[in-house]
Computed example of a mutant assay.
Amino acid sequence: MGPLWQEQHQGRLAAWPRRRAVGAGAKHRFVFVDRLLAALVNLRHGTTHDVLACWFGVDRSTITRAIGEVRPLLAQRGCTVARGMRLRTLAEVIEHLGVSEQTGIIDGTEVRVRRPAAGRKDRDKFVSGKTKQNAVKSMVLTDGEGRVLFCSPVRPGNCADITQARQLGLAKLLAEGPFMEILADAGNQEMGAQTGGRVLTPPHRTFKKDAPAWYEEMHERQRKAHSSRRIRVEHGIAHLKNWRALARHLGRREHMSDIVQAVAGLLSHQQTAIHHGSRPA
């Protein structure tokens, strides 16, 4: 990431007319490695910028600017599925699962955020219908073992899971790609018909009331069998929420997409290293 940051930094310096040549003047006291460490500590433990500034002996504004530069670079790395192989888009994830004949699991997760200021337009769109709290929502896709493969950019909390999946083009990618199975919850039942049975959801109830005992037993058995296969995505989401930045976000909502995707990339790197039997970097 060092060369990417250096290239980005040089591009900013050369983006406007200058009296001095690029590279002249005072040099950075806060080197890139320290900037990266500050961003990682902020994501993992939610340490405030004031505390990080004391640790590194710089001004708070320097920490804020450094994290703002490093965080998008972390988000652009994508999710690691093997050494030297990263997936950055949903299309790449679907192709990888189809070629490797693996089953994917999708689910939505919410991160609580600050309430928008009074009088702001569309203030209520961040209120989640599920938790009745101000939140943003991201779609998480894992493999059958619960390893995170993709986290989507966030949407306001009132966005339904199936709406977010449609906006990401999941139905089209599944219909045009190799045959594979995606496990989903009951909120995505319409996706099954749209994708030719590629999206598997819990079974519908044939009897709304006064169901026979044999039907109740069969339906409960099928529902539990589906849930036991889907539980892996809940484990993946739980590992994401272990990062303090995703437990509850008190900063600007505009940064949440980069934060979610940066954490997903870092977590997937750790999971891949553990899966291959080596110590995570």
Score class of each variant (00 low, 15 high):
G129S: 10
E216N: 15
K130S: 11
H276G: 03
L250I: 07
R253K: 14
T195A: 10
L183P: 00
F207E: 07
W214G: 02
K224Y: 07
E7P: 03
R229V: 02
E216D: 10
Q133M: 11
S138V: 09
D124M: 09
P212I: 11
P153N: 15
A175Y: 00
D34Y: 05
G2E: 15
G146V: 01
A82F: 03
E220P: 03
V93T: 09
Q189A: 15
A15F: 01
R229E: 08
H45Y: 13
R86V: 10
W55N: 02
F126E: 01
C159L: 09
V140I: 15
T206Q: 15
L43C: 09
L173I: 02
T142N: 04
L240T: 07
G23R: 13
A175F: 00
V81T: 12
G146T: 01
T195C: 06
T131F: 12
K224G: 03
L174Q: 04
R252Q: 11
N134M: 12
L149T: 00
C159Y: 05
R83M: 01
E7T: 10
P116D: 09
E190D: 12
V81G: 06
G187Y: 07
G169Y: 03
L250F: 15
G277S: 07
A171L: 10
E176R: 15
R221W: 11
V99Y: 05
A193T: 13
R18P: 03
L267E: 10
R44C: 01
F150C: 02
S278V: 14
P116E: 05
T131E: 12
Q102N: 09
G177R: 06
L87T: 01
A247K: 15
N42W: 14
E145Q: 10
T62R: 06
G157D: 07
L174V: 07
W214M: 08
H269G: 13
E220G: 05
G236P: 05
N42L: 09
Q133D: 12
L246I: 08
E254H: 06
V260A: 12
I94L: 11
I63F: 00
Q222C: 12
R29H: 14
T131A: 13
F207Y: 14
I63W: 04
A193K: 12
G196Y: 10
S268A: 15
I231W: 06
L250D: 14
V31H: 15
A171T: 11
R166F: 00
H28M: 10
R244P: 04
H49I: 00
M85H: 13
V260L: 13
A171E: 11
A66L: 03
W16S: 08
E145W: 01
K27H: 12
H275W: 10
W214P: 00
Q167M: 05
R166I: 04
V199A: 06
A75M: 06
M139W: 03
V136P: 08
R115N: 07
G144H: 06
R230T: 04
P202A: 09
L174M: 08
T103G: 04
R147W: 04
G192E: 15
W214A: 13
R253P: 00
A186F: 09
R147D: 07
L168C: 00
P156C: 14
F179W: 14
H239A: 14
